[in-house]
């Protein structure tokens, strides 16, 4: 039997198909008043379709910047990002972000928030059906008429998830989406995400600073270092699913990972 350490840095073999995401020698420099900061340097990363990849690392390692570049909110300083072979130039519904903070529109109800991205493409009846379907999917069946300020933080992130899932993105980008939730709600949300992922098999890039969250969720864990922001390790998680946080294997792998960083 392989030990987790032997598995470290083997990465995952890209399939024969075109990768869902291919990042090639990506760099980004922030210019400050007193010089500049290499936020990202020479990032190469390939993620195949249906993979769930967690990106972790200390704060300031550029993981959120990487996500914003993939989303198209920023332009890279150098290198390229390709989604299914197409170079990213601007934001689009093929790469959707679930933000860390609450970014729901406060003037729209839960259902209207979910409908926001697709309402101009559908008739009223089809739209209502779709919205109901996604409300059910994230477990908010009866909350469509509520306003964001009337629901809890965990429910808001469910809505944030539903409003991007309805767009059927190629790649789902998640920027510490459960970071602000209490432990119990976070675990519920992790389970929800995993069950949706098994059902819909999206490609997911999930940023977290919480290693145990990464071990719970990921096929692969990318560890970054800061200044310059680089990929330090690309680790395949060998644990079978469903993973139990209480199991010995989980703990052993988690400790190995910890000690390595």
């Amino acid at each position: 039997m392989k030990t987790p350490l032997q598995l470290i840095q083997t990465g995952s073999a890209a399939g024969t198909k075109q990768p869902a995401l291919a990042i090639d020698r990506l760099s980004k420099v922030f210019h400050m008043e007193d010089g500049y900061l290499n936020v990202l340097q020479d990032i190469c990363l390939t993620i195949s379709e249906g993979e769930l990849v967690c990106i972790s690392g200390p704060s300031g390692c550029g993981k959120t910047t990487l996500l914003k570049l993939i989303a198209g909110f920023m332009k890279p300083g150098g290198g390229t990002i390709r989604i299914k072979g197409r170079t990213v130039t601007r934001p689009g519904p093929d790469r959707c972000v679930v933000f860390q903070e609450d970014a729901l529109f406060p003037w729209l109800t839960v259902a209207e928030n979910i409908a926001f991205g697709v309402r101009q493409f559908m008739g009223r009846r089809q739209l209502n059906n779709e919205v109901d379907r996604y409300l059910e999917m994230v477990g908010l069946g009866s909350f469509g008429k509520y306003l964001p300020r009337e629901i809890s933080g965990g429910m808001k992130q469910r809505v944030a998830l539903a409003r991007v899932l309805i767009l059927q993105p190629q790649v789902l980008l998640m920027d510490e989406p459960f970071g602000a939730l209490d432990a119990q709600t976070r675990e519920e949300m992790q389970n929800l995400l995993l069950s949706l992922w098994e059902k819909l098999s999206h490609t997911i890039i999930f940023i977290t600073h919480d290693l145990s969250e990464a071990v719970t969720l990921a096929d692969r864990i990318i560890i970054m270092t800061r200044n310059p922001g680089r990929i330090q390790a690309d680790i395949t998680v060998p644990l079978p699913r469903p993973r139990k946080k209480e199991s010995d294997a989980f703990h052993r792998f988690y400790r190995e990972l910890r000690s390595r960083l």
Binding site: P91, V97, F99, A103, F105, F116, V164
Partner: peptide, 20 residues
Amino acid sequence: LFYQAGAMMGVGRIRGIFAI
């Protein structure tokens, strides 16, 4: 964040004025 959320949901600058 509202503009970023709008952009990823396909809302451009002009429609963003009215929708966001």
